[in-house]
Design a binder for these strands. Structure first.
Lengths: 221, 221
DNA sequence: GTCTATACAAGGATAGAC
DNA sequence: GTCTATCCTTGTATAGAC
């Protein structure tokens, strides 16, 4: 890994754990084991470090979502891949930045925060949401053609609901101790699927569906 | 309004718009038209200002939720009040702090952010979520007794889903330009209600329900 | 209660040697 | 590419007069 990459990963780590303003160039330099001014050889400013950190997050996320959705075939599997991808991203991010301690990180809150502060970022972030919205809408459209997704569906609305449920749950799990993400993420997905699957299927099919996936801790609703 | 309250409201305003670290005591002093050191007569430190700002948000929100839910009778109305309360809170907050410009504020992201930084805050915030969870669960339980809420319902799971949908949507609307909160909040609520209402009701009842409320911009799903 | 003056620390950034 | 030395600004906070 080049020095430039190590600086970027260290920045990302501190930005996620401590926040942008609470991160100092000294902290980053110490973590990479170089001196402060060396950072300026690789990056123009502290702001530049933030921008590249967020670009890195969004690029990686987009790449992983595209990759994992493409590998699946049925809309149900594709949506599940989409879910898994975003839910797993925090964990993967922890590994990428070498977050040895058990500090809870939350990339969603970080992105929301800086979107309103820097116009350059807000455009890139909006672009990210446009991209994943497009992917989701396409899954729904293809599913409708195969009669695997409800026909009377406001797809734009469905897309927004899906994204806000995922992100809302991740964010909530970091502030509300009762919510243990890994225990309920499957349920969230199953519940959402009930809104998308055609209703004309008889109860029996639904029941079969209820037994799909890992053991859940409570009744579906 | 006392000087102390004016300092608190100015702090809250800047914390919401600029962020805690980007807010300086000079900005607050200027807004209240006093000098910097005078702040220390009323508050112990800058951190104290943050704590009181967040307590103010949570206290006010809890109060308004409790009040508006109590005023309603049926579970459907109560849940609607709950929704309205949180969706309206941002706007009300803007008025309270005298946010003259059209700066978009988002109290949810602010709360999520500082919950992970200050233990004192994380406990108060967790307490807030426990309280609104209790309120929601009670609505569901009472509704079940009256056969107005689905009987086979994992209430704990439902509560978490409701909260994360509301907060997820509010947060998403501040970063994804396509999402216009006021256009879709009614739909979000109606969609959610479909998960809670008993299924044994025939289609007819559902259709009547679809015509309830303000004109919507798209088909329900 | 509010002010002036000031201490004290720390951050981002640059100059210029090696 | 990386370093030492240093500049400059700004922030929180306190002392003490009025």
């Amino acid at each position: 890994m080049t020095t430039k990459d190590r600086i970027l990963m260290a920045s990302l780590k501190f930005f996620l754990i401590e926040g942008y303003e609470n991160t100092t160039l000294s902290m980053i330099a110490d973590a990479v084991d170089i001196k402060k001014p060396s950072i300026y050889y690789h990056f123009k400013s502290k702001e530049g470090l933030l921008f590249h950190s967020i670009y890195f997050i969004l690029n990686t996320l987009e790449e992983q979502i595209t990759h994992s959705v493409t590998r699946s075939n049925t809309p149900k599997e594709q949506l599940e891949s989409f879910f898994e991808c975003i839910f797993d991203f925090n964990d993967k991010l922890s590994l990428m930045i070498g977050n040895d301690c058990n500090n809870s990180i939350n990339f969603i809150t970080m992105i929301q925060l800086h979107s309103n502060r820097f116009k350059e970022l807000s455009e890139r972030i909006n672009q990210y949401y446009e991209k994943i919205s497009y992917i989701l809408k396409d899954i729904l459209t293809q599913g409708q053609k195969k009669n695997l997704i409800k026909d009377a569906l406001d797809k734009d609305m469905a897309v927004i609901d899906i994204i806000s449920r995922i992100e809302g749950l991740i964010a909530l799990s970091t502030v509300y101790k009762t919510v243990h993400l890994n225990n309920i993420r499957n349920q969230l997905y199953e519940n959402l699927w009930l809104n998308l699957a055609p209703q004309n299927n008889p109860q029996k099919k639904d029941r079969k569906f209820f037994n799909y996936g890992p053991i859940s801790l409570g009744r579906k609703w």
